[in-house]
Write a protein that binds this DNA or RNA. Structure first.
Lengths: 231, 231
DNA sequence: TTGGATGCTTGACAAATGTCAAGTGACGGC
DNA sequence: GCCGTCACTTGACATTTGTCAAGCATCCAA
């Protein structure tokens, strides 16, 4: 792997405090790949050969059962995914595919586990990371079980607003995938956007405008215990 | 805390390999409490003062939003809960209440973090535990998003069957709470049980009998990637 | 420019799920 | 034993969500 990526990886909280020794072990076995859009990277149920790091592009983590399929997470740079499977050496629970052209680092899980066993700074960083992943998953379950699809969409839009810091932004996801992510059909997403018009949501293609955030907030009732993905 | 509980805690994977030093630190600050049924132990949003360990009884982890409430997990002996919040020092995402008379150990989160920082065996054990919690949460999300309520109930019954090793068993949860856990109303759970009669499910109060597991399995299509809670 | 793709939207309808109200049955206190 | 409480059940109905089919817009290649 070109050394130019080393610093980028070092900057990730997960790797920031590893000893030079362990970091070198990881980098020695690592390699970078460029993938075209819509390429399957991993399949749920497979053994966890690699820990993945998205350097550029975006990756959809999804799952299938009985002919149905649902998107669970979208991974954007610079983040790792399937850490839990790698570290515990158990099968992937989700499949992954590129959404767009993506550059991805592959770290052999064996190396990850070896460094994890020796380097306690790495072990501690993994704890922080996993705790965050776990909490994100709980938040997502709460979102699903406590809210209607209209409320989920409203809160999703407010989260995007907070992320971009603007009342006008582009959807970063295809609508069909957003629908799957929010746990509804594309048809219903269309209707849900219509349903938010009374709360000042204007949609034009992928362009979203929130006319009066206060009104939307009053409807959506966002909660840090569901919508704040930073803790 | 009476020393009689020490061994019980030591037997938990989470604490099995801690150094004597760290274990003593934890035990010094720990105390055991007996709680009556239906007592609130923690409230979501509160700072994580204690890591909890259920010694006896059972605890319901639930969450509320906008006047609605849902059960997320039932914790049974001997297991810890809210590890993620304790270790990262961030607010609880779920409330907890006893379902029955319960004995619970409280470990000050500060102590947990202190030992975590020094004892790498503990750090590694936490990784394993958190990875399992994370994966359980993902499985639960898949269950919710990919299955209808009838399918969720059918798979729940099959999981109970595997746990007990028998085609005839008692529900360990009140039906109303099972309904909430499965993401439906009590009324709908009643109807769902009716809906499983054609697949050989007999219900008598809390007593369940699966006449022909093969038939139910054919309908429920259980998958290790959703229903196997051991990995 | 044209003709498919493809993704999105819309309407009509069906299925799943929730709500409300009433009824049943088991249990415990008096 | 009686009575109230409470969980559970049932039926009628409302709401939400999904399905299917058709139409529309956009993009891109021929």
């Amino acid at each position: 792997m070109p050394e130019s990526h080393f610093q980028e990886i070092r900057n990730l909280a997960l790797f920031a405090n590893i000893e030079a020794d362990g970091f070198e072990t990881l980098m020695r076995g690592a390699y970078v790949h460029n993938f075209p859009p819509r390429i399957d990277l991993i399949t749920e149920g497979d053994p966890p050969d690699f820990l993945h790091i998205v350097l550029a592009g975006s990756v959809d983590l999804y799952s299938s059962w009985n002919g149905r399929e649902t998107s669970l997470v979208t991974v954007r740079p610079v983040t790792t995914f399937i850490l839990a499977a790698s570290v515990n050496d158990v099968p992937y629970l989700m499949s992954a595919r590129t959404l767009e052209k993506s550059r991805i680092i592959l770290l052999p899980s064996e190396d990850v586990r070896a460094v994890f066993a020796k380097d306690s700074a790495f072990a501690r960083a993994i704890v922080t990371e996993l705790a965050q992943c776990y909490r994100a998953a709980i938040k997502s379950t709460k979102d699903l079980k406590l809210r209607t699809s209209l409320e989920r969409l409203a809160n999703y839009l407010l989260r995007q607003r907070n992320r971009t810091g603007s009342n006008e932004f582009e959807l970063t996801l295809e609508k069909r995938r957003l629908a799957s992510f929010l746990g509804m059909t594309p048809e219903n997403l269309s209707r849900a956007f219509k349903g938010l018009v009374p709360y000042g949501v204007k949609v034009n293609g992928t362009q979203i405008r929130i006319a009066d955030p206060e009104v939307l907030i009053r409807f959506a009732k966002p909660s840090p215990l569901i919508d704040d993905h930073s803790t």
